[in-house]
Design a protein around this nucleic acid. Structure first.
Lengths: 248, 248
DNA sequence: GCAATAGTGTCTTTGAGACACTATGGG
DNA sequence: CCCATAGTGTCTCAAAGACACTATTGC
């Protein structure tokens, strides 16, 4: 990597501020929801946005910063939570104040006992993902795009990874899992075929002993997540383009 | 996003340098290769590394910076090339000089007429991907991890997107495509089944008129990439874990 | 008994993999 | 003719989707 574009010796790289943005997804009452906050400061004061913030200092790891923001915004601890990096967003002008590169994280949380607890609880709330995707609510910065990317990533990973188990508690029924797939994919699935496929995916779920009583009907067996990191065979999503004819 | 961790008013976000790193993948003589350079400056002077560099200034878009580096290192222009963001890498200490966040890009190039042309051609060379994955060559910084992630991404996208067409020229034969899959996945495929699957994937390839003569054998029909953005049905990779039994 | 949910079995169609065969070029 | 590569057909098995049926609870 010789000389930087042939500039003079005094050339120094531009100094840029780095933030993390969190797309925290969950199911609440079988509805696929994302955590949003109302911004208390400019820019976009009063607008809705993803939780997030600047790296605390030049020594903080990006992943650690995401964990820290997660805790500050929701009170959630790292344990048992799925969090993975989504992408970096750094278009000049995405923040009107200054140049910022934001690293977005995708976080999946099981349904929580209380709406949202944490430092900024007052201004944080769950919103149906569909309302964001449909532009029924508009978000600050490029956060709409980030949510879109995160949802697409989640939908995709449901097919070939046990990600769905991150949406439910340690023990869950097969019907619980089905609700995850239905809510995230926005489809309805045949429970009998779903049973067969989930059971057939090696290492996806393993029996967890007891049963769960429900208000009505036969009690369901409980399962917990298996050790598989990928699903064989995968749980394929019903093709949204029902008949992909004529691709010319 | 109220007060930043309750620090005093004078808190300012840390200033961080942003770089781009390019994982440029291609097939050369049916071998899956990645473009590496020999570093001419510290740190890691003399080591092999991915091409890349700092953002030129605070107004340069990250994607544009990746395009610029691509041109500077290889002479390749944006057109007809596949380039997508891979991920951000920002572990403190990954660069011994200072804190750096690097945004890696995955680039797929068709086999090029000459080895590598460009500003830094002298120090750039193609290396078999397998040698990098196997640690037969070691790379500066965390570039080994970046290459691993890039290869995994490419392998994955071959299954469900027409990414393979980015490895070949505008016109190609089905056998050309098969060589891409075989080299990237590191497997050998049955040409007859491959034919059926590629032809059956709607919008993957469309006939391109003429035929191509080869040194021996029947001339092959030429195709060009179709308009499909995803493959239905997908071209599934032979399960590397042949029999994923006993996932407990 | 009835309502409601959990779980099983069976049939049909589709696609994957194995592999025999035909087609068309150059020597 | 032979060799090499291109392309087709056929069989078997696995998995997806549709859907009838049985099982176990609360009332």
């Amino acid at each position: 990597m010789p000389s930087h574009e042939g500039e003079d010796e005094a050339w120094l790289p531009p100094e840029i501020a780095v933030t993390v943005d969190l797309v925290i997804l969950t199911l609440r009452a079988s509805v696929f929801q994302v955590l949003l906050i109302e911004r208390g400061e400019p820019p976009f004061q009063g607008s809705w946005a993803l939780p997030g913030g600047f790296l605390r200092d030049a020594e903080e790891d990006i992943y650690d910063a995401a964990l820290r923001e997660l805790y500050e915004e929701t009170g959630l601890e790292a344990g048992n939570l799925h969090m993975e990096q989504l992408a970096a967003y750094g278009t000049p002008g995405r923040d009107p104040r200054r140049r910022i590169v934001s690293v977005a994280y995708l976080t999946i949380a099981p349904e929580l006992p209380e709406p949202v607890a944490g430092t900024d609880a007052a201004s944080a709330f769950w919103t149906p993902v569909e309302q964001v995707l449909d532009h029924q609510v508009s978000l600050a910065f490029d956060h709409h795009d980030i949510v879109s990317d995160a949802v697409e990533r989640a939908r995709d990973k449901l097919e070939r990874t046990p990600l769905a188990t991150a949406f439910v508690g340690k023990s869950f029924t097969i019907t619980d899992l089905q609700r995850v797939y239905e809510a995230v994919w926005g489809v309805s699935l045949d429970p009998r075929n779903f049973y067969r496929k989930v059971q057939g995916a090696t290492g996806f779920i393993v029996p967890a002993g007891s049963e769960r009583r429900t208000t009505a009907g036969r009690p369901a067996r409980l399962y917990r997540a298996g050790t598989a990191r990928t699903l064989h065979p995968p749980l394929t999503r019903p093709t949204p383009s029902a008949a992909p004819e004529e691709a010319r």
